[in-house]
């Protein structure tokens, strides 16, 4: 589905569910910020922040729907610091994960590098054993362009 139909559906939903839309817009500001600063095409940051943020606004939304989808309900939901705290805390959790995971991932990758190199070399040795030394030739022939690419 393209972006335009999705936008139209969201706008239609916002028109019919205006109090919910107002409440959602206010409580999902952190996700909006994440969307703006996210430069990745896959929008990993937006997902990381947006998903818990959405979970955080669900109690306020359910409360609004139980009270009958009114603008008063929406504004009182916005004014309720508890709702604000829950939604923003959930978004904060997302930000926390986004900034905390690289430390763990970096450590893990540096530990696993040596093993991975060994694994690759062993697999290469198996190939040489099965097909002879000549199987290396194409790799050595192909090496200079690789180096060049690396240099570039």
């Amino acid at each position: 589905m393209g972006r335009l139909p999705l936008l139209i559906i969201l706008l239609l939903l916002a028109v019919f569910l205006m109090p919910s839309a107002i409440l959602g817009c206010v409580l999902m500001v952190p996700s909006l910020v994440a969307f703006v600063v996210d430069r990745n095409k896959q929008r990993y940051l937006t997902m990381t922040v947006g998903l818990p943020n959405f979970c955080g606004i669900l109690p306020a939304l359910t409360s609004l729907w139980e009270r009958g989808q009114t603008f008063d309900g929406a504004f009182s939901g916005i004014a309720d610091p508890w709702n604000m705290m829950v939604a923003y805390s959930a978004a904060g959790f997302g930000w926390l994960v986004y900034f905390g995971v690289p430390v763990i991932v970096g450590s893990y990758l540096s530990i696993s590098t040596e093993g991975k190199i060994k694994q690759v070399r062993k697999y290469q040795d198996d190939l040489v054993e099965a097909w002879g030394e000549s199987v290396r030739q194409s790799a050595s022939a192909a090496a200079p362009p690789d180096d060049k690419e690396d240099d570039e």
Binding site: Q42, L51, Y98
Partner: peptide
């Protein structure tokens, strides 16, 4: 594997997955 770019790329994916699961 431990270059900043790779760590960032893997971390972003990992963060998204953790966030989605939670």
């Amino acid at each position: 594997l431990v270059s900043d770019e790779n760590v960032r790329m893997v971390s972003e994916k990992t963060s998204a997955v953790i966030s989605a699961v939670c």
